[in-house]
Design a binder for these strands. Sequence first.
DNA 1: TTTAAAAAGTGAAAAACTCCATCTTTTTGA
DNA 2: TCAAAAAGATGGAGTTTTTCACTTTTTAAA
Lengths: 233, 233
Amino acid sequence: MDAKMSEISEDCFDCFFKATCNKSISEEDFDFLFQSTIQQKFKKGEIIFKQGMRTSYLMYLLKGKVKFNFEDENGKNLILSINKAPTLLGLANILNEEINIFSIIAIEDCRGCLIDLNNLKMLAINNKLFMMNVLKMSTDLFRSSILNFISLAHKQVNGRIADILLYLSKNVYEDKLFTLTLSRQELAEFAGCSKENVIHTLRNFDTDGIIKVSGKNIEIINFERLQKVSKSG
Amino acid sequence: MDAKMSEISEDCFDCFFKATCNKSISEEDFDFLFQSTIQQKFKKGEIIFKQGMRTSYLMYLLKGKVKFNFEDENGKNLILSINKAPTLLGLANILNEEINIFSIIAIEDCRGCLIDLNNLKMLAINNKLFMMNVLKMSTDLFRSSILNFISLAHKQVNGRIADILLYLSKNVYEDKLFTLTLSRQELAEFAGCSKENVIHTLRNFDTDGIIKVSGKNIEIINFERLQKVSKSG
DNA sequence: TTTAAAAAGTGAAAAACTCCATCTTTTTGA
DNA sequence: TCAAAAAGATGGAGTTTTTCACTTTTTAAA
């Protein structure tokens, strides 16, 4: 136990999840939750939640980035969202204990805490404020995915790629210059288009001086024009 | 009061919302909720929840059908979902009292009960089971819209229209033969394509003997082939 | 370090889709 | 019940996007 504690104490010390919890539950309740958590590592490409399976835990992602991936009947993939730590994953399963409708997959090395869903539910049922907080996180996720979806559903590829670049820069890499942890194929699965189309579009944006592409490195040079492309769709 | 009661009593007698509520709250609590409800009619085309506005109520839709409509910066519309009574509308606003991200608009004459959100919240906070029930409805909606998104986000128009026809037949009109309460333009806004494309596709499906189109009347003749078109995308 | 495999990139043909102009039919309201 | 407006339908030109066949570059593993 000591070994476990010392290994993860530095993370736990400023864990955002703990901070959020402690706003609404007591130290003792958090310890109860904490007892059952296991810290776990995932390599790039590893599946954290698997589409079609049931899971009995949430994961609080401490480090790394993940994709929400849906695979259809023909084996084609669609990326629903890209998210970075810190974030709570698996919320869609809190209330309806149905099977996962999509996978969550590490797109770079990740580390997180698995939180037992039954324990969390037990706390939530007995603590209104805590339940409100957890569910607010859940509905926030819903809102952001709707906006994501809307953007993709009725723009042309130029606008969709522009949206994705803006999204990645603002919400995932948090810089105008970033090194992609996604392949061109994955960008295509995010934009709902072909790989070639992604490559052509990125090159066009580069030629137009909107971005600077060099392999996996992308720099957004002209935000305004990129936003204009996003708007005009 | 008597007038009000008598006017709506027949609906209330077998109201599904009341039935759902009474599983988890007492008669008195339901009456408290009921006191503040107002039955309201909406004509086809009228806006029930308006994008960009705050609302302080939910609506339990007793009769009619609605569309979830998102309007973008350029005035283009996207239909996120079509839903029929009975259903509870406005759940996305329970926790986060932010502005509505989309409108909900009647696509045929509707009738429903407006339920005061504050009263409902007050009950929910004091009754865990009731809260669970209401929030389960909310997350169910989330699940079904994700599936909707996925279907639309990476299929070609043939597959998208096939999906829409199957969805309308199964979940909205509940018959293989139905009279559309949507225009071709609205179908296009649901499928994320042009009006002309909808018309062509419907005609092709008709020519191929998959469906029978006659104005607003549509009959699905060959479910298997329609499902095949949906799968092949 | 070499080699095999995966990813990135290219260009052109084919397919899918939109946009436009125009016409017909249906709906709506004075 | 008639006229105006809205919705539906049509076909073709032009654009967007996919698909394919292929080359080059990068990555990972023996």
